[in-house]
Design a protein around this nucleic acid. Structure first.
Lengths: 122, 122
DNA sequence: ATTAAACTACGATGACAATCGTTGACAAAC
DNA sequence: GTTTGTCAACGATTGTCATCGTAGTTTAAT
């Protein structure tokens, strides 16, 4: 099983998920709002490679990085984690919080309702 | 704003939320399955006090600890966090994952549906 | 009062996360 | 072909998390 990515790792993964592959420089440019050094990104990608979260294409001059964990996997991993840690495994409690925390848009409510309809057919 | 509790801190908070206040020894006894030392729990509670996650009643011989963050707050904090980090702020994406990840029981589906009904009235 | 038990405080450690600077290799430009 | 700039590797640093051992303090029992 893939490890749970750290917050900084997730920021990088989000960039990769959006458009792969990317070089260190490209990731760094996209994260420049964070004002973090080039070598920091490089190191983070190296660590992530160690963990099996990304792979590297070294055929070119600038190495390119691909994610090895999908956004779906990461989402499920994160959800399972907080479900276990703060919601005592109660999915409905999680839904309640998600629904009441910040008001959802009508569109979102409609989407969610549609999901539920499909669910009940199964 | 309260900081996001760490995993170990959440284990302790879960115990406090269930029944407050508790002494170090009481928390330790309840966590003995984890085989962690008494002083570890003590230290953790001290750190949590520094962070403002708990408060301490020192009037008695054995100090008693109270949570200063509610389970609700913690749940919302955690949800907001992963919503931001892995779901790009899309609540419906979160719902989709939560619904499809592990099968929900019929009871849970019913509960969630009821929540939605109430929601739409507002 | 003296001691034994229970409890807290403090410091230390090892692991991991996040950050950066320096060095050395390579390639492009002159 | 020498210089200049770009890039990855590596090591070092700082901070946080999780854990524990020791020392000191307070209560209670003798």
């Amino acid at each position: 099983m893939k490890p749970k990515p750290t917050d900084a790792e997730l920021e990088i993964l989000n960039i990769l998920w959006q458009d792969e592959p990317k070089t260190v420089r490209e990731v760094h440019d996209l994260l420049k709002a964070k004002a973090v050094g080039y070598t920091t990104i490089l190191k983070q990608l190296q660590v992530m490679k160690e963990k099996g979260l990304v792979k590297r294409d070294e055929s070119k001059r600038s190495h390119s990085y691909y994610s090895l964990i999908s956004q779906e996997q990461a989402q499920i991993t994160m959800l399972d984690h907080i479900l276990d840690k703060v919601f005592n495994g109660s999915k409905s409690a999680l839904f309640m919080r998600a629904l009441s925390a910040k008001p959802s848009s009508k569109e979102e409510l409609a989407e969610i309702k549609a999901l539920l309809e499909n669910m009940e057919l199964g």
